[in-house]
Design a protein around this nucleic acid. Sequence first.
DNA 1: TAGTGGTCTAGACCACCAT
DNA 2: TGGTGGTCTAGACCACTAT
Lengths: 278, 278
Amino acid sequence: MLASEVKEMNEEVPQAAETTTEAVEQDLPPRRVMANKLRADILNGELPPGSPLPSQRELAEKYGVARNTAAEAVKILESEGLIESRNRARPKVRERRRLLRLGAERYSNRLRNETGLSPFRAEVEKQGKTARVNCTSIERVPAPEEIAERLDLPADDDTVVRRENWYFADDEPVQVGITYIPWAIAEGTVLADSPNMGKGSLYGRFEDRGHRITWIREEIGSRMPTPEETKGLAIPAGVPVIDVIHTGIDQDEKPFEVTTFTMRADLNGLDYRIRIED
Amino acid sequence: MLASEVKEMNEEVPQAAETTTEAVEQDLPPRRVMANKLRADILNGELPPGSPLPSQRELAEKYGVARNTAAEAVKILESEGLIESRNRARPKVRERRRLLRLGAERYSNRLRNETGLSPFRAEVEKQGKTARVNCTSIERVPAPEEIAERLDLPADDDTVVRRENWYFADDEPVQVGITYIPWAIAEGTVLADSPNMGKGSLYGRFEDRGHRITWIREEIGSRMPTPEETKGLAIPAGVPVIDVIHTGIDQDEKPFEVTTFTMRADLNGLDYRIRIED
DNA sequence: TAGTGGTCTAGACCACCAT
DNA sequence: TGGTGGTCTAGACCACTAT
């Protein structure tokens, strides 16, 4: 049997999504046809979340292709984030996970002082999960360029404290945050050397130094994870990360802290309520 | 030559990224080793953006593997978003694209009235690009559940106007927005049937009906695109989409409009400046 | 221990891109 | 038109999962 070569996805552009399920299998190569069929089965509930896919050998026979080809079909669905293959076990339809919805209120001064909880902890516990934060390193380093810019550091003194934090929900790693603090602010405080921030957490200490969080800027992007992130956050195939560059700005419009977050997109989301200024 | 089987990425969990470039090629399967080497070459500038990769046949020979295996190595990089293969041409190292940074100011009432520009148009032109928005459909439909919730619609009247808009920058499709407007608000206005919104754009018309945008809620997530989105937005492999559910809320705390955006993550980002309430 | 997914090989045909 | 990427086949070995 010969390989029937095809045009693939080279059509024009716009127009809405079609979810017709059938009639999609025109001239597509076998693995696409197979992927389409499986995808349809998943979306219409034939293969509910958690259920295992047919084995590659079964699929291969059913469609009259080599097992190799069946494996490729499965890989397509994996790259779309629809299924999950742990190690060498039978791939399963991915369960819909509940998201952590991180909002700006988590920086609220009042909330912080009332609950004493860190922003992350407050959010996770609201979801009935157990939060854990691991501070894995505290270093004094020159600020990376994109950090120095946002902190508005003088060119002749770009020393910052770099604090790396790993965030867990129910012992599953969900995000990493790297906080950069100008040396001038951190010097001589727990910010510079202790993982333990004390009452009111990080922002409590900034307040001690005269910086009350008044504005935040959050720059958000998304991309596929690097191999290191894949490993570190145990990110399944087909799941992107959300990048946030967070800048804390005080009552005098001065930035005093930048934190970059990298979060698994299947476990995290953002939720802002913003007042529109006239 | 035999396939040397390996543990792959099954190590433990946390710890920071290592970017050592070398010594990564312990016991990894060939395609991983090849992918690692190519990735390193890309990241260290040996293979600058825009430059073509070696051919699969060259790679296969160089590493003493079947061409098939070389192809798989290349696919790994593609799925990481590092390279781009247009059709059957030689894959190239992906160029860093400049992002559109969409912020909340784009809803500013003052800005809108001064420039007369729609939020998207204002942002794109700020970047020196040409904006185009295509309204591809206007329909009267029952609201999907997640929309009805956010619009706080009564159960017995969930009719909304659904407006689908495609957004282009320099003739490249960059996002799709689907706006839902309660029928009670849209009825008898251009909102219900005309692609042309007139002066002050969409939000101008809402103001005519007594709804002044005062708050917005933006719920943000990210995921891999569906095949339809891949086609419609011409999304390259290895590029996720950013999902935004935007809710417009008026001076009386009433939601009057929900728009879902789906944007290419390599061309779009979000940038919020938010006042922290006490 | 049987069966599964992960991976590799060697050879092949095709449509397309660049020359 | 030659070389490239895209795709498929048929057979193979392995480590691991599930039973």
